[in-house]
């Protein structure tokens, strides 16, 4: 959460800075199968976020000592492009923040991928944030899930992710960059929609008991729309055509 000094107004006439209601997500679009070389890929535009995810594998484990004889290992790289931010020029490659995010994202997919289907192999997930505007890890997870399915990797479910949190007394969903920086609490989540299990949960700032409940429910309710967009994107690869 940003410093209280110079904090901009996040609520104007009962609406958010970009005119949204508190339970309203930004417009987004999901496209699967966008890269030729990767086994699976996905491009997500989420508000002003632009995120590319790709999957390679199952492939040979490198280095070999990381190999698990009875299951696949997952590697994940989440990184922000140096030109992804409006005001800064970032360094290339993952920093400490990106390394932590990479780890928790990896753990999301260890839950849903049928690892035992691919013994002694490695599955790589790459998430490149080409443009960031708040909520990049959530959009990255939503994209990576589609990329995995597009690669034909066996999964028990197709997780989605979204960030929820608090602006003053309001519980709100899908923070943009300004809200990300100055809100009172931010809580990114990833959820397996089939059984409602929460696969990623991070939080900072302050929420009381009732606020947490409300925020959790808001993230779960958002699943319907996001999940549908994910599966629509996957079906679209086949022109929605069915029947052989």
């Amino acid at each position: 959460m940003g410093s209280s000094e110079n904090k901009p107004e996040l609520v104007i006439n009962g609406k958010r800075t970009d005119g949204r209601d508190f339970d309203e997500m930004r417009p987004f679009s999901i496209k699967a199968n966008v890269l030729k070389n990767a086994d699976g890929s996905c491009y997500v535009e989420w508000g002003n976020n632009r995120i590319l995810a790709a999957v390679y594998g199952p492939k040979e484990v490198m280095p070999r000592h990381m190999m698990e004889p009875d299951r696949a290992i997952i590697k994940c790289r989440y990184a922000m492009a140096p030109f992804s931010s409006l005001s800064d020029h970032g360094r290339t490659g993952p920093n400490r923040r990106a390394i932590e995010i990479s780890k928790v994202i990896k753990e999301v997919f260890e839950n849903v991928v049928v690892l035992r289907e691919y013994p002694a192999s490695e599955i790589d997930i790459f998430i490149e944030v080409l443009q960031g505007d708040g909520g990049t890890r959530a959009a990255g997870i939503t994209a990576a899930a589609v990329a995995l399915a597009n690669a034909g990797i066996q999964m028990r479910d197709l997780p989605y992710a979204i960030s929820v949190g608090r602006i003053g007394e309001h519980i709100a969903i899908d923070f943009n960059m300004i809200e990300d920086n100055y809100s009172d609490s931010d809580m990114p989540m990833a959820i397996a929609p089939r059984n409602g299990e929460i696969l990623l949960l991070q939080m900072d700032g302050g929420l009381d008991r009732a606020q947490v409940s409300k925020a959790l429910q808001m993230a779960i309710d958002a699943g319907k729309v996001i999940s549908k967009a994910q599966s629509d994107a996957l079906r679209e690869v086949y022109g929605n055509a069915a029947g052989v």
Binding site: V112, A149, M155, R156, D157, L158, A192, R194, G243
Partner: peptide, 25 residues
């Protein structure tokens, strides 16, 4: 008739043994 399905999608409301699918509850 064949239908396009994604991971986690219900293919049968009952228990059915088939490849590339799993049963729960």
């Amino acid at each position: 008739m064949k239908q396009i399905i994604v991971p986690g999608e219900v293919v049968s409301q009952s228990q059915a043994r088939m490849d590339n699918a799993y049963v729960e509850n």
